[in-house]
Nucleic acid binder design. Structure first.
Lengths: 237, 237
DNA sequence: CGGCCGTTTGATGGAACTCAATCTACGTGG
DNA sequence: CCACGTAGATTGAGTTCCATCAAACGGCCG
């Protein structure tokens, strides 16, 4: 269980991305790096946090994609958002918290418990992440409430690109997209059939290219023009 | 500015509703009651927090309705949720926070700054409120993404009823509903015309009654059957 | 009284859903 | 190596829910 302490490196990118949201001391970074050594691997497709169950401690996602979702009585399924490397889960943890949504691993996922107690720079980073988390939920509401299928898709793709880029997980305008079309549909409040047709249209227009789990945003300018895209709030604006 | 200290009373219901989310000591309640004396009155229709502006300190809503919203480039309008008496605003406040949404007074609103620093039982209450706030955002996402107009309306009415009831602001199954139908439409991702027709249907079915800004849920049982309604998470379950 | 805001009603159109079937890629076991 | 099964992507036809456009109605206030 105990491994020999290694020099903490900001090159451990999910940690560094998390860390990017506050000015962390060398000690803070050591604490995070130490926490990351206690990583746990979760198999793809596994629902590892259940809605209504006592929410556990806060977790840092080190690699992979997970999603938060809820299922309605009759089987309708809504995905609230994704947790990408550097994101936190169970962020609103407190005394008698129960999980407000299920969390499922979309790919294989590595997580580690966030260091306890939360103090100093790490507390500041927590607060900043909480605010960012809220920003994404509000954006999701605006997408679902007031955008067309085409706009929802483009806005969502731009959000994912920006978030992955912050962890160094993009390659130019390309990035891995491990979601099925049905998964995208459950996120955007559409049917998988309509997601398919909308993606086809974007492809035919030369706005995106899709091959083997990798998407390329061929024309970011025109994509941004499709929606009211604002860059996410930067930590030290 | 300074008023003579009065004995703190839990009968000051918005404070007591806020307080209901953690076990507060007598001192905590005194602190809250003192904070409530510095109340500020905001006129109806006034946008008193602007999206993108530096978010101020956390505020407690003492009376009235406010809503958080965002406007898209082309004028489309989305309301994220309402702040009712006992709710908090600017809850995800931190160092360099900017407001992720505008906040507008729907009715005349009274707010007071939350006591600083946030410690002890009040900190616990803050954490619980944050979790509840997240719960409402997730519910709003599920409504917009996966419910029909009828379901959205009923689910939203039930949510508002429960929240007002927690502050003692309901009278049996009736409560004041100061929103215009357009406001409801902007909340539920519909047009005001369709909100109107859907309300008419619910009326004709004897499920609700609407008179002079007051709504009555005539048949809560059948309303609950319309949607997958779960009671909100209780503080000390 | 007249203008305004919000509600109500009607007619029409379109975006997205449903149902149904085919196609492809991929893994698995005979 | 090929038959088979499955998961996901794709395409087509028909339908529904909700938006749009247009107009009338009611209450309220200056």
């Amino acid at each position: 269980m105990m491994t020999r302490p290694q020099p903490a490196s900001v090159a451990d990118f999910p940690i560094s991305r998390f860390a990017a949201f506050a000015r962390l001391s060398a000690d803070d970074i050591d604490i995070l790096a130490a926490a990351a050594r206690a990583r746990r691997v979760i198999a793809s497709r596994r629902e590892f946090l259940c809605e209504g169950a006592p929410a556990g401690e806060p977790l840092i996602v080190l690699s992979g994609w997970a999603y938060r979702s809820r299922v309605l009585r009759d089987g309708r399924h809504q995905i609230f958002g994704f947790a990408l490397p550097g994101d936190l889960l169970n962020l609103s943890h407190h005394g008698n918290a129960v999980a407000p949504a299920a969390v499922t691993a979309l790919t294989e996922v590595q997580v580690c418990p966030a260091p306890q107690p939360v103090t100093g720079g790490i507390a500041a980073a927590f607060a900043a992440r909480r605010a960012l988390e809220e920003h994404y939920l509000l954006r999701q509401i605006a997408r679902l409430g007031r955008m067309t299928a085409r706009e929802r898709l483009v806005d969502w793709l731009l959000e994912i690109r920006d978030r992955l880029a912050a962890s160094g997980l993009t390659f130019g305008d390309s990035f891995a997209l491990p979601t099925t079309q049905e998964c995208i549909a459950d996120t955007l409040g559409l049917t998988s059939i309509h997601v398919n047709r909308t993606l086809q249209t974007l492809r035919r227009e030369g706005l995106i290219a899709l091959r083997g789990g990798t998407i390329t945003l061929c024309d970011p300018e025109r994509l941004i023009a499709v929606v009211d895209h604002r860059p996410p709030p930067t930590p030290f604006a």
